[in-house]
Amino acid sequence: MMAPSVLVDQTSQAVPTKSSDRTLLRVSHPNPSLQVTADHNLKSAEAPVYSPRAGEALVHIKATGICGSDIHFWKTGRIGSLVFEGDCIIGHEASGIVLQCGEGVTHLKPGDRVAVEPGVPCEHCFLCDDGRYNLCEDVQFAGVYPYEGTIQRYKNHPAKWLHKLPENVSFAEGALLEPLSVVMHGVKSAGLSLGRGVVVCGAGPIGLIALAAARASGANPIVITDLEPARLAFAKEFVPSCMTYQVDRTKDAQGNAEAIRALFGSHEYVAPETVLECTGVESSVCTAAYTARRGGTVMVIGVGKAIMNNLPFMHLSLAEIDLRFINRYRDTWPPAISCLSGGILDLRKLVSHVFPLEKAEEALHLCADTRNGSIKVLVVDEQDASL
């Protein structure tokens, strides 16, 4: 585990000056950041540092994971209705150490190690009132324009959405809590059962975490699919009890589904009850639809195209296959932390590459090219936590 940073007296180093309605801090360390621009480029830039407002905490970001959505925003400028209309600091899978607390913050103090839950809902709409805050239409999500993300040294964040890390959970593991939360929401919504078969489509970071979570849930047997043999080999090493299937590009969705189902045996009742679709790729969603047994569930966790035209509607209908979706997560961070601290899941092997903050742009370029063999790429900052 990374040793927590040591705080020094900040009062001699932080000199406040006024900038609009916020207090701008002059800091002794620079605040490098990585931004996606409105014209689909990456830009490294010095970002301002502000003192925390009431209810906020200023966090020294120690680790941020690169997510597929960061790549999507860079390459296309949008995911569905989420559009980059200007320059914005990206990153949302993060952990760090609290430097300062704003007025009214009582559950955190400087020096606390925390994970960042990046979505900040309005807390006033009917969805928030109903506890479904992940569906809030006015959510302020870190790293999604215009809300600044975590690939920077210093970031303010509402303290309510910062979760303390126990000492046996490292900053690197803290950054993995966000993708773990995605998977936990999907697994809970899919309702995995002890001894029931599961297929995981896609052996990227989300698929691999879903594989580990399915194993921990007691699902059996488990098959994971992917196009890349190297990723399947990693999946087998990561969860040795799983079976793997390399998607055959020469077969259509039904053909690949037939081959996947054959791994479960010849009887219909042993066919996979649940498919966790973790790619968002249309052909994979179609394969998932044909793979699930009649009356089964396809849980789409991956992010895909805004419109899909070729879903097998009547097959889903006649087989009463429950096609479900998730949007991020809710109420997952404390149990996700418990999973890691209690040894239920060990995700450390997923970290394949680590880049210093000053080379964050290189991290994104590496992550964007599947030929580089990355699994989870982290951007870390080893600077002292003082301002």
Rank of each mutant, 00 (worst) to 15 (best):
E258Q: 14
E237D: 13
P30W: 09
G197L: 10
A47Q: 15
T76D: 15
F171T: 06
L180E: 08
A216P: 00
P240W: 07
G207T: 04
C367K: 12
L276E: 04
A257P: 04
V36Q: 03
P335I: 15
H353E: 14
A289R: 00
T274Q: 06
I375P: 01
E46R: 14
L318A: 12
E85L: 06
S95V: 13
G65V: 04
S181F: 04
R78H: 14
P30Q: 13
S12H: 06
I206G: 02
G104T: 11
T370Q: 15
A57W: 00
G373N: 12
Y50D: 02
R324W: 14
V114F: 05
F171Q: 03
G104P: 10
V169Y: 05
N327C: 15
V270C: 11
L34T: 06
L99P: 00
C88A: 07
P118R: 08
I337E: 10
V379C: 07
P179T: 13
R261V: 14
D331N: 15
L318W: 08
S352D: 11
P229H: 09
L177V: 08
G55D: 07
A63K: 03
A216H: 00
R328K: 15
C125Y: 09
S284F: 05
E85N: 12
A363G: 14
I79G: 00
H72W: 07
E46I: 11
W333S: 01
K349I: 00
S181C: 14
A57S: 15
C278T: 11
V6L: 10
D384K: 09
F238Y: 14
D87G: 11
V198T: 12
T291Q: 05
A213S: 09
L165S: 07
E137S: 13
A259E: 15
K164P: 08
H29M: 10
H353G: 05
A336G: 14
A213R: 02
E46C: 05
L108F: 10
Y329A: 04
E362W: 02
A360D: 08
R22H: 14
I79P: 02
A214W: 02
V200Y: 01
L276C: 08
E237Q: 15
L165A: 09
M1T: 08
A210H: 02
M299G: 09
C88K: 00
L263S: 00
G111I: 07
H353F: 11
H365T: 09
C67S: 12
D87E: 15
V285Y: 00
V199G: 04
V49R: 03
A142I: 02
L108S: 07
P272K: 08
I209E: 00
V98F: 04
I71E: 06
K188F: 06
A216N: 01
